[in-house]
Computed example of a mutant assay.
Amino acid sequence: MSISSIMSSGLQSLQAGINRAAIAGSGLNVENDEFAGKMVAMRQGEIEAKAAANVIKTGDQILGTLIDIRG
C-alpha cells in the first residue's frame, strides 16, 4: 500500500465520520423518538473521525521517516 493511498483512505474516512455526525446532529430534538439513535450515530461519527485522523497522522509520520531516510 502506498503512502498516497493511506492518506487518501484516511481523508475519505475522516469526511465520512464528519458527515455521519453532521447528519445525525441535524434536526436533533429531545422530543424526537429517534433521539437515542441519533446520539449513537453522532458518537460513531466522532469515533470514525478520530480513527481516520490517526491514520492520517501515521501516514504523515511514515512519509516523514521516508524523507529522512532518503535525505
Rank of each mutant, 00 (worst) to 15 (best):
M1V: 15
M1D: 14
S2V: 10
S2L: 12
S2Q: 05
I3H: 12
S4W: 10
S5I: 13
S5Y: 13
S5T: 12
S8H: 10
G10K: 05
L11Y: 13
L11T: 10
L14V: 02
A16P: 10
G17M: 04
I18C: 03
R20W: 02
A21W: 04
A21I: 04
A22L: 12
A22D: 14
I23G: 05
G25P: 06
G25L: 06
G25K: 06
S26K: 10
S26Q: 13
S26M: 10
L28T: 01
N29F: 07
V30G: 00
E31F: 01
N32T: 05
N32S: 12
D33W: 00
E34R: 14
A36L: 15
G37R: 12
K38D: 03
K38W: 04
K38G: 06
M39L: 14
M39A: 09
M39K: 09
M39Y: 05
V40Q: 15
M42G: 06
M42T: 03
R43L: 15
R43H: 15
R43N: 14
Q44V: 14
G45N: 01
G45W: 03
E46P: 00
I47C: 05
A49D: 02
A49S: 10
A51C: 01
A53T: 06
N54G: 08
N54D: 09
N54W: 00
T58I: 14
Q61F: 11
Q61I: 14
Q61S: 14
Q61W: 07
I62C: 02
I62M: 08
L63N: 10
G64I: 04
T65W: 10
L66V: 02
L66D: 00
I67A: 00
D68I: 05
I69P: 01
R70S: 05
